[in-house]
Design a protein around this nucleic acid. Structure first.
Lengths: 222, 222
DNA sequence: AAAGCAAAAATTGTCGACAATATTGACAAA
DNA sequence: TTTGTCAATATTGTCGACAATTTTTGCTTT
């Protein structure tokens, strides 16, 4: 049973790769507080690499929208705002809806049956009340559908760009794995639509699913 | 009458900024041929800057999906394929459709009337048969609607990521400013929907508009 | 001649130093 | 006390050199 999205990507080779992943983890999980200024010299001593490595890592983080940079001034970790969260979920709704539609069209039968298997595993864990794996299962579910779209632009935008920001909001607002039982039913219906090759329905259900999730989070925010 | 999308962004400050813009221009316009390997040392002599500057510029180009990079091997300009074009337009359809919907909701009355003015200017130029400005006018039209969405993620994905790739395809496949008269009508209807604050219609019309545009290009490809 | 191997060359990755720019702090004038 | 100016400090931007890795080249062996 493979969880953990990151494992599917090629292993980090260069020092810059590793530093980028470390920094991203620290930012997403809030060990580096949202809004903090990222001092290049400071980070280079902290992570034990040269400033060139740090600079390149920061550039990549900027490309993911996890930090913002001003010329000759420096980079700051993005600050999390309710408005930003709403914007993010708006984009997610559109893009993941599209992913579901394309997945219904482009996933192989084998991929679909594996997805059904994942759902079953997820169900077992929900019964056992293992909230850590609930989160991982949810991420994995969405991740597979995104990959199932077979659209490389879409895949890159979601998995490299948007997803880590979403995780950052979820982790830092303390809402990992919410809405579990209802979310599970929604997942099931989406997979059914995909298995029936009904792209339109899959898109609509996915959009709803994300919309509900947004509403749920908004409720907790206010 | 302000055309030229780039002018709205802050002027390039650093040497890296300028080099990035030069390189991007050369890639998009085909002066550096699609598929070419980008040698860091070669480019650093060509553009008269250090390798560090070139490296950072290439990193940014990678973030825009204009080049692909392999660790310890190097970067290549992306190669253009019919499949890639289709994937790109699929994403565009979804994202720009969303932009139109949000624009209908979020643009100010003033912005909308300026957009109507742009359309009028564009109409005059179409009558005169000035094909260069047709292209610019079309780009500017889409650009304003994207900005009108007021969703920063959406804006960044489209204007920093996807748009330059679209331009690259259009320039290099030799189809700048096609379908002018029909496209103009489509633009007009989209603006009407936005002015009526009818987001759903605006989205649908924009999706159609891009779909037609894709079909038109596909016809030329085969 | 073809395939495999090893040395050589070229390319990318990383580093520390210097230059350019921004920030801070002290001091003077209102 | 507040404001403005200028020097001092710290930070980012750029550079050239070295290290690590890949690619090429030339030789050997079958």
């Amino acid at each position: 049973m493979v969880y953990f999205v990151e494992n599917r990507q090629p292993a980090p080779i260069t020092s810059t790769d590793k530093t980028f992943l470390l920094l991203r983890k620290d930012i997403v999980e809030g060990h580096i507080v949202s809004g903090t200024k990222l001092s290049e010299t400071e980070l280079s001593t902290k992570y034990g690499v040269s400033r060139a490595v740090i600079r390149e890592a920061i550039n990549r983080l900027e490309a993911c929208h996890l930090v913002e940079r001003k010329a000759n001034v420096g980079a700051r970790v993005v600050s999390l705002t309710p408005e930003g969260l709403i914007e993010l979920y708006q984009v997610r709704e559109s893009l993941e809806g599209m992913a579901a539609r394309l997945a219904a069209q482009n996933m192989t039968d084998e991929e679909i049956s594996k997805l059904e298997g994942l759902l079953q595993d997820h169900f077992e864990e929900v019964k056992q009340g293992d909230s850590y794996y609930q989160e991982a299962g949810d991420v994995d579910f969405h991740y597979r559908i995104i990959l199932g779209s077979k659209n490389s632009h879409l895949i890159s935008i979601l998995t490299e760009g948007i997803y880590h920001l979403v995780r950052m909001y979820r982790v830092q607002l303390g809402m990992a794995g919410p809405r579990v039982s209802t979310a599970f039913d929604e997942h099931k219906h989406i997979v059914q639509a995909i298995a029936n090759r009904d792209g339109e329905l899959a898109e609509m259900l996915m959009r709803r699913h994300i919309l509900y999730s947004k509403n749920n989070i908004e409720k907790k925010l206010t």
